[in-house]
Nucleic acid binder design. Sequence first.
DNA 1: ACCTGAACACCGTTCAAGT
DNA 2: ACCTGAACACCGTTCAAGT
Lengths: 227, 227
Amino acid sequence: MSPDISAGDSSAAADTDRGTRHAGIDRDDVVETARRLVETEGPDALTMRKLANELGVTPTTLYWHVGKREDIVAAVIERQSRLMAVREIRGDTAAERIVNAAMHTWESALAHPRVTGLAHTTGASAMLQLPQEIALVRELDAAGLSGDDARDALRSILATIAGFLVLALRRPAPDAPARTSHEMWAGIEVAGVDETTRRAMAEPADLETLCRTSVAALVQHWLTLAR
Amino acid sequence: MSPDISAGDSSAAADTDRGTRHAGIDRDDVVETARRLVETEGPDALTMRKLANELGVTPTTLYWHVGKREDIVAAVIERQSRLMAVREIRGDTAAERIVNAAMHTWESALAHPRVTGLAHTTGASAMLQLPQEIALVRELDAAGLSGDDARDALRSILATIAGFLVLALRRPAPDAPARTSHEMWAGIEVAGVDETTRRAMAEPADLETLCRTSVAALVQHWLTLAR
DNA sequence: ACCTGAACACCGTTCAAGT
DNA sequence: ACCTGAACACCGTTCAAGT
């Protein structure tokens, strides 16, 4: 759509022979353009031809500068992880600070849903949120959790957040029927379950609140192992 | 690979004019063959041409009997969910029975990793595990959790299990580098983190044990709202 | 060193046509 | 009613060739 060929805000690499046989594109331009493409149009829009078109080059050029699509995806995620700043951690008690640090991964994921989705389908979410993960480990350590206990607590907390993120980032295809859990409960009859319970099941949950509550419960559990 | 054209154990639909212009295929054959294809070769192997080939027909025929690929996927998952029997729930206390019921979703997912993976990428995991979900709600109800509290407890528990399943089902491409969290921790230096902690982070976790522990902690939390 | 053109082996989907 | 053949608009990737 946008005829904007130049690759944005990278400081160096000015207009060296633009328009000649050399496009003047470097690896950084490819990765950043790919990242923007994902962020604005979603993971499916990241095709070699579309990306090449955006840069004003041929798909083959991408292979020379970066590599195959998988490599471009990895580079995009690594770049995005550096763009996501680690926010200041607040809280008076150790538990509060841990929950706060944990919810930072939730927030930064929701702030970039499409890149997060890409990372998720590629199995590279760990790479994307490594900085937040480190910050979280520091808080666990400060609370007296170290070694294997710290690792188990970390994995437990992050797995739970990841599970909620899957639910939160699911953008339903506008036509498709009954995919979410509460939609399915709306259309069934179940024996042995209270009717008010069944109706509650048919309502969507407040995922953010529920995620925080769940994480808090886990933190409370893991802190019993501290010191 | 296998030259087995006939579509297995569906009772009706015998050999009506096999080999003529009518292939004698019906909707059930398509869905079951698709399901087996996913189970043996994974979600990526489910292409219209490959599935048609397996059935000895043309891709277009699939559109007549079932519909587009998305429809076939939905039918496969719905069929698989009926194939997965709900196992008996054990446990002396209410908490034990809830954890046991919850872990049934973990086990049945791991028993069919490829179909689960397909359901996961399609956002249809809820459809796949609806029977186990209902069984779990019955246990929550029996423990004195009903209405909104039961719903929140259910979503919390299932999200956590889903998060762990994502980790457990991730089959790493044989070449790809450092994708998992512990692999990344092996290759970095971090200030402010204990060295023994860092080494612990570089070790993989026992996901099943950790999942059960986490679910148990959540159950303990939610049961405080019971009655 | 950097980039193009053409080609290969795939996809999902549609549509007219056959029996 | 059931199925085929041909075609369209896409994919990722490779490879020889150009400047």
